[in-house]
Design a protein around this nucleic acid. Structure first.
Lengths: 146, 146
DNA sequence: CCAAAAGTTTAGCCATTGCTAAATTAAACT
DNA sequence: AGTTTAATTTAGCAATGGCTAAACTTTTGG
């Protein structure tokens, strides 16, 4: 425990961390959409734009606009007025997101927070956790469950 | 351990969680600025816009624009071409941010990730952690340190 | 099979947070 | 003090992700 942060801290070279946070924001929305679309397909057999809008709490038009971006990025396909489908790449991204999400959510539950809090916080945290931290979380959960 | 997330998950009413995440994003930038300004004042005796720009990795003009917003929100004060100062409210916000940041960073260190990862990840996570989770993290760290 | 309802898209707006280049002010050096 | 240099601000632009209202399809029910 030698490298503990103490209160009178140095403001070091931190721009990398902030840039990383900003970069995360651009991809995290795409991942949220793709993950939700995957869930809808698994749950209801298809993903409609209006359902995505409801679950994300945004307007229909916003979803339409985002779906165009996601199509440009090669993550989803859709014909006008039809349901949304995921490309292979879209499925990979969704599955990676689910994996991270589950690890974080289960970790929080194991830490002892309520299910509701685990659900909400994991949504926010999921995109900002490095693979190293993710591994540490998974390790912790596995240990506690054993 | 009854409420563990399993892979074929239900896509429930999650719009609240997403809305919360979007709302966090608006305030997290303000907190990053204010926290950094507080660090600079403590470290160098004053906070200059150009220094803020360097540390956050953005252009000078971006900082100027943000500072106007922060002044409108009553968090900082500044006379043209002069150094940046924090209002009482600004200091509270900064201190709250530091507190959260320290808890998360120390928690990650205790979890066993490297110092570099703890620094970077805590930057991203800090703004998305509820008070309940924060408490759980602090408890965990305290227990391990004992 | 056609009209009404429901679902989807388009058009056009707004706020936010970036940027560069040019103008302005303050500071430092003869 | 005056001039150069450095710091700061202004002006104007771009991308992103929201929204509402109006237009257009698809679906559904006589």
């Amino acid at each position: 425990m030698s490298n503990m942060t103490t209160t009178p801290r140095k403001a070091k070279l931190q721009s990398a961390a902030f840039k990383r946070t900003r970069a995360d924001h651009s991809s995290e929305l795409a991942e949220d959409y793709v993950e939700l679309i995957a869930d809808l397909i698994d749950e209801k057999g298809e993903a409609r734009g209006s359902e995505v809008a409801i679950r994300l709490g945004v307007a229909n038009a916003t979803v339409v606009k985002m779906l165009k971006k996601l199509m440009e990025r090669g993550l989803v396909t859709q014909e006008p007025y039809r349901e949304i489908m995921l490309t292979g790449e879209g499925w990979s991204l969704a599955q990676n997101g689910r994996r991270r999400h589950d690890i974080v959510e289960n970790f929080l539950l194991t830490l002892g927070v309520t299910a509701e809090t685990a659900r909400i916080d994991s949504e926010g945290i999921e995109h900002h956790v490095s693979n190293e931290t993710l591994k540490a979380m998974a390790r912790f959960t596995a240990r506690k469950m054993a």
